[in-house]
Every structure is written in structure tokens, then in C-alpha cells.
């Protein structure tokens, strides 16, 4: 009876440890991915689209005023 109880406890502890380690790894992976996404969103390439749009509006306005 004691042997079975000990085995169950060992199995439970092992499962809990594995789950905890997996969760910790996943949290750290999430943090890395989130930081990477943050930096990618700040890259000059990601901003180019916005600058092109603003520039084209400025050009349109200048053309309108010129007309």
C-alpha cells in the first residue's frame, strides 16, 4: 500500500515538474517572440509604408495647389 502511494506521489511530482518546465519554457519563448515582434514593428522597413503614404499625400496636395 505504501509502495503504491509512494509511486503515485513520484508520478504526480514528475508530471507536475514536467508541466512546470514546459510552461516556463513556453513563457520565455513567448517573451522572446513578443520582443522580436516589437523590434520588427520598429524597423525602418516597417515604417516605410507609412512614410510613402504621407509623402504621396504631400505630393498630391502640392499638385492640387499647383493646378
Amino acid at each position: 500500500m505504501t509502495l503504491v502511494l509512494s509511486a503515485v506521489i513520484v508520478v504526480c511530482v514528475t508530471v507536475f515538474a514536467v508541466l512546470l518546465a514546459g510552461r516556463r519554457r513556453s513563457n520565455s519563448d513567448d517573451a522572446v517572440a513578443s520582443f522580436r515582434e516589437h523590434l520588427d514593428a520598429l524597423s525602418p522597413e516597417s515604417r516605410q509604408h507609412m512614410f510613402d503614404r504621407v509623402q504621396s499625400r504631400v505630393t498630391d496636395t502640392e499638385t492640387d495647389h499647383g493646378a
Binding site: E37, D40, A41, L42, S46, F51, V54
Partner: peptide, 13 residues
């Protein structure tokens, strides 16, 4: 424009 970029990428930033 900088704040506008944050609006365009709201979740990432």
C-alpha cells in the same frame, strides 16, 4: 508620424 506608426501596429507596439 511616430505615434501614427504605433496606431498602425497597435498590438506589436
Amino acid at each position: 508620424l511616430g505615434a501614427g506608426h504605433c496606431i498602425e501596429n497597435y498590438n506589436a507596439l
